[in-house]
Nucleic acid binder design. Structure first.
Length: 441
DNA sequence: CATCCTTTGAAGTCG
DNA sequence: CGACTTCAAAGGATG
């Protein structure tokens, strides 16, 4: 549950500098309301999840009262609905299932796990996107998959989970960006955040060339086309998947049967049974790991190259299978709402300023997080809730305890407000960076 | 090269 | 049960 700010939302002010720029920063149009609404916001945070489970949207009148300036959301929502329509149309046309131009990026058209509808009856944007992005590397079993990119329904495309293929010449993101960051970035978003590829010089959206679609996942020789990360908008930095893929990761311990069982409960009747039941022969190829699985044999965050190496060199994995089996793969924690928000917004903040230090970026994002409206935050809480839900379904036995203490993180001996050596840089300079950035906005 | 920094939230441990 | 700790992401800084 969201932690409440005991002091009326001053948790951001871990130090005095933070407090000082808290009042003069970005989004001035929100500040006045934030002062009064922040506590309210905090108060309601704790109820967001449960509330969203029962009624994914809060009172319209209340929202209108609280956030009159969030009206642009309706615009973006309209666009979102356009995406929906397009996605639905293509789905009905079978476009997603044909011509897997991006065979490595099936979209998981798993409907909302619990509450896909907003109060107005519309499908929750996050509900639709959530699972599309869940397994960004799903179904990239090997080069064969790529070579078989023309197959309408390739056998390797395991149907353990609903898999949606992109039509030719359709940007994998375009029809399926269901909730965008438009309301966060009214201006021209960075190309890596945008569902469209923007010309770096003109900023004009253009049709991405396949070779441009995936700067994150270099293809192995012989691979056909590049793969655009369906979560590129959400994880624009490295194009890393929500969860990393272990080397040889498609032999991961995640039991396909368990996945079938669990996923089937997530799959609505919208999906034909053939999508759910995978051909047995594909199991070993596409024993699709949830991206949360990270082999202990590698660093937690493999580069895109490593990922692709893992993908394309599955059988040539340098890690002996037995050794791999011995070591329990590292299953990451599901991301919480703020982490999801950070993933989505980080690149935008980075693009808007020269800062690259994550600590500074995170400070900005933390402030922005607090400036979000209730419904904006609710979107991420809902997303995080589904994240946890799916995670628990995928890894029934997993517990956060499994990762507890694994980092051998050196415990901070100092209190947060004290100034341990080595923290000086951040303690004194980072807020200035942030302040500078805030002033620019 | 491992860890720190920094953020919020979830979930763990501990008294 | 409340307080505290750890880990999720990120990447530059630091030792």
């Amino acid at each position: 549950m969201p932690q409440l700010n005991g002091g009326g939302g001053d948790d951001l002010g871990a130090n005095d500098e933070m407090i000082s720029f808290k009042d003069e920063g970005e989004q001035e149009e929100k500040i006045s309301e934030n002062v009064s609404a922040e506590r309210d916001l905090d108060d309601v945070k704790s109820s967001l999840v449960n509330e969203s489970e029962n009624n994914s949207s809060s009172s319209d009148s209340e929202q209108a009262e609280r956030r009159p300036q969030t009206r642009p959301d309706s615009e973006s929502y309209e666009k979102t609905r356009d995406y929906f329509s397009e996605a639905l149309r293509r789905q009905q046309d079978g476009g997603f299932f044909k011509s897997p131009h991006y065979p490595g990026y099936p979209f998981l058209m798993i409907p909302d796990l619990s509450n896909p509808y907003l109060s107005n009856g519309s499908l929750s944007p996050s509900a639709r996107t959530y699972l599309q992005m869940k397994w960004p590397l799903l179904d990239v079993p090997g080069s064969a998959a790529l070579k078989d990119s023309r197959s309408p329904t390739p056998g390797h495309l395991s149907n353990k989970v609903p898999v949606v293929q992109h039509a030719h010449h359709v940007h994998p993101l375009t029809p399926l960006i269901t909730y965008s960051n438009e309301h966060f970035s009214p201006g021209t978003p960075p190309s890596h955040l945008s569902p469209e590829i923007l010309d770096p010089k003109t900023g004009i959206p253009r049709t991405p060339h396949p070779s441009e679609l995936s700067p994150y996942y270099p293809l192995s020789p012989g691979a056909v086309g590049s793969i655009a990360h369906p979560l590129g908008w959400l994880m624009p930095q490295q194009g890393q998947p929500m969860y990393s893929i272990p080397p040889g990761g498609f032999r991961h311990p995640y039991p396909a049967l368990a996945m079938n069982a669990s996923m089937s409960s997530l799959v609505s009747s919208r999906f034909s049974p053939h999508m759910v039941t995978p051909p047995p022969h594909s199991l070993h190829q596409t024993g699709i790991p949830h991206p949360a699985i990270v082999s202990p044999a590698i660093k937690q965050e493999p580069s895109g190259d490593n990922i692709m190496f893992a993908i394309f060199c599955d059988r040539k994995s340098p890690i002996p299978p037995k050794k791999e089996e011995d070591k329990k793969p590292h299953i990451k924690k599901p991301l919480n709402a703020f982490m999801l928000y950070m993933k989505e917004m980080r690149a935008k903040v980075v693009a808007e300023c020269t800062l690259k230090e994550s600590a500074a970026i995170n400070q900005i994002l933390g402030r922005r997080w607090h400036s979000l409206s209730r419904e904006e935050q609710a979107k991420y809480y809902e997303l995080a809730r589904k994240e946890r839900q799916l995670h628990s379904q995928l890894y029934p036995g997993w517990s956060a305890r499994d990762n507890y203490g694994k980092r051998k993180k050196r415990k901070r001996e100092n209190k947060p407000d004290s100034k341990p050596e080595g923290k000086g840089f951040y303690t004194f300079r980072q807020p200035l960076f942030v302040l500078e950035y805030e002033r620019k906005l």
